[in-house]
């Protein structure tokens, strides 16, 4: 069968107006179903004719999924809330600026106007071998092309790999880990709450998925607890281009300060592993310090312990180390 691109294959478009209906439809169509949020990842797959769902479930008509609400002292962001709404939301800007900051680093204004919180978190990896429709592990095949000796793996991972070496492309994911967000995933058996860091899974668990979500699941909202409001935040995304580019390495860090001392820290890095990595050990290391230069240096070194480069991505090791240093040093 010859290959052809850039023509969306036919599908049935289903436009539920309630969460329950959406979940019912997902349950009904199972692996033939595809959830359409902002669609910016989905349309690529469709246009490449690689993913061919029989039914596309467009969540755009479900009012409950949209909007940012106060909840339990924190905030609840509907999965279909656009990234622009997040960037502009006054409370997010003031209390959880790292989330707005991260959302603002996504692609372009048009994409932020359409792309959603849920879509940004649930999007698939950008490994170009995989996205080219090659039959790699992630695509259900039996190999990883990106880790071959001369493969083009500049953007791939330096840790956490297991057969697959692709990285998670989300900009908001590390920021949500840094503020200890919870993802609420629903299916016909009811809602389930995941810590942000547990929401993302590596290929060792399931090589075909980036998150815990299985075909019947729907990410409905993200809860940001009050605990990390108004912490000291640091967000940085290193990319090749200023817009429409995925991270080489990005970092999101939150520091709860007491006087000049870090009481508690949460640091997450993306672009280095198949999932956003929370640096627990670094967090423990910096707690109780002032984020001074020596600590920052040690934090950087600790962060990259065990990192292993592929042929073309050794640079990510110092890049990650330097970003961790910078993040920790930012509070000093």
């Amino acid at each position: 069968m010859a290959k052809i691109r850039d023509m969306i294959p036919a599908f049935e478009l289903l436009q539920p107006t309630t969460i329950e209906a959406a979940i019912d439809l997902l349950d009904e169509h199972r692996s033939g179903a595809w959830v359409l949020a902002g669609g910016l990842d989905s349309f690529d797959w469709f246009k490449d004719r690689i993913k061919r769902p029989s039914a596309v479930i467009d969540l755009g008509g479900i009012p409950e999924l949209t909007g940012i609400r106060d909840a339990e002292g924190g905030l609840e962001i509907g999965a279909m809330t656009t990234l622009t709404s997040i960037v502009r939301h006054p409370r997010i800007r003031s209390e959880y600026s790292i989330v707005a900051d991260a959302a603002e680093h996504v692609a372009t204004p048009q994409i932020r106007n359409q792309g959603t919180m849920g879509g940004n978190l649930a999007q698939d990896t950008r490994c170009w071998y995989y996205r080219s429709g090659w039959p790699c592990y992630r695509a259900g095949g039996n190999t990883c092309y990106a880790s071959a000796p001369q493969a083009m793996n500049r953007e791939h991972c330096i840790m956490g790999r297991s057969r697959c070496v692709a990285v998670n492309p989300s900009d908001t994911a590390p920021a949500l880990i840094a503020v200890d967000a919870k993802m609420i995933v629903e299916n016909t058996s009811g809602p389930k709450v995941y810590d942000a860091e547990d929401f993302f899974i590596g290929p060792s668990i399931d090589i075909t998925r980036m998150t815990v979500m299985k075909p019947r699941d729907l990410l409905t909202r993200v809860h940001i607890p009050a605990a990390w409001a108004n912490a000291e935040f640091y967000y940085e995304k290193v990319r090749d281009r200023g817009s429409w580019d995925f991270q080489l390495v990005s970092i999101a860090a939150a520091f709860r300060m007491s006087g000049g001392t870090i009481e508690e820290a949460r640091i997450a890095v993306n672009g280095v592993a198949p999932y956003p990595v929370r640096l627990d050990a670094v967090e423990r290391l910096v707690a109780g310090t002032s984020g001074d230069e020596a600590t920052a240096n040690r934090a950087g070194d600790l962060a990259i312990a065990g990192a292993r480069a592929l042929r073309h991505n050794d640079y990510k090791i110092p890049m990650m180390r330097n970003l961790v240093r910078r993040a920790v040093g930012s509070v000093a």
């Binding site: 170009w128 090749d240 281009r241 200023g242 817009s243 429409w244 580019d245 995925f246």
Partner: peptide, 10 residues
């Protein structure tokens, strides 16, 4: 995005 011609922010 993979060929990366410069945009407004580059």
């Amino acid at each position: 995005y993979t060929a990366r011609p410069p945009g407004f922010l580059d």
